[in-house]
């Protein structure tokens, strides 16, 4: 058991290393995770130029947008890229379960997209002169950790769906912006119509955004942050359990349908 866990951890980290090496030379990916969130951050900072206290909200929000774009676009794209290059079949036929590899890949996507938060932070503080103090660093750092874990597990739910068929890939475009809005990455969901609120509550990224915003810029209400952590943890456990089952069912289905490869 311990040996298997060690082996799986090693493989997941190796998968993360492979992704990081491959992505470092891909300009589309660098745009998605660094430049696009930076543009969002600059627009947000310009729109809120009269409210310097909101700058950290924008920086954290743009970082979250990078995180989500990375999850939706790059996770989906990378699975289809593996299908095109024939490596998806290789991965499925390996003794290591595919969810282990996917977890490692998601870790790499999340780590890399955190770059966008750092880039936005650097631009706002170094070039635009904002004082970007994080109000409650002791709450912010664990919030960031729970966010990363929750996004990795959320990616574990999405990956098997992308494996199902190349056609699923077409729907990912529609998943990006609604989540930016519904999860309050860039402005509080209180500004949205009331009927949208239940949808926000169902989405893990909303709780991640809430924990990060509250600890970085909000009142630092410990109750709100702790509740967000609890929901993030609970959703992580649920996502991991569901994804294991989903991987089993979908991998069986694609082996029945013969849609793993292209030939």
């Amino acid at each position: 058991m311990l040996q298997t866990t060690r082996q799986y951890t090693r493989t997941a980290l190796m998968a993360a290393e492979v992704v990081l090496k491959e992505m470092a030379v891909d300009s589309f990916i660098m745009f998605t995770i660094v430049i696009q969130p930076l543009i969002i951050a600059l627009l947000g900072l310009w729109m809120l130029r009269d409210r310097p206290d909101a700058a950290i909200y924008v920086v954290v929000g743009s970082g979250m947008s990078g995180l989500w774009s990375s999850m939706v676009f790059i996770s989906g794209n990378s699975i289809n890229a593996e299908r095109w290059t024939g490596t998806l079949e290789m991965l499925v036929a390996m003794p290591t379960p595919l969810y282990v590899v996917t977890a490692g890949r998601n870790l790499a996507h999340v780590m890399q997209s955190l770059l966008s938060m750092i880039a936005a932070y650097a631009v706002a503080s170094l070039f635009m002169g904002y004082a970007l103090d994080i109000d409650h660093p002791l709450l912010f750092i664990p919030s960031l950790f729970f966010t990363v874990v929750a996004f990795i597990s959320f990616g574990l739910i999405m990956a098997p769906i992308f494996i199902l068929s190349p056609a699923v890939d077409q729907f990912k475009n529609g998943l990006e912006f609604p989540i930016f809005v519904l999860c309050g990455f860039l402005f509080p969901i209180a500004l949205l119509p009331e009927w949208t609120t239940p949808f926000s509550y169902l989405l893990t990224p909303y709780w991640a955004a809430r924990a990060l915003h509250e600890s970085a810029h909000g009142g630092g209400d410990v109750g709100v942050v702790l509740a967000s952590w609890a929901i993030l943890l609970l959703s992580t456990v649920i996502y991991v359990a569901v994804s294991r089952r989903l991987f089993r069912v979908i991998l069986r289905r694609v082996r029945e349908d013969g849609t793993l490869g292209l030939a």
Binding site: T11, V18, M90, M94, P95, V101
Partner: peptide
């Protein structure tokens, strides 16, 4: 690097 990755996927000890 390809071989290192596949060695890990084949569950080879480092």
């Amino acid at each position: 690097d390809n071989l290192r990755y596949f060695a890990s996927l084949y569950r080879l000890d480092p």
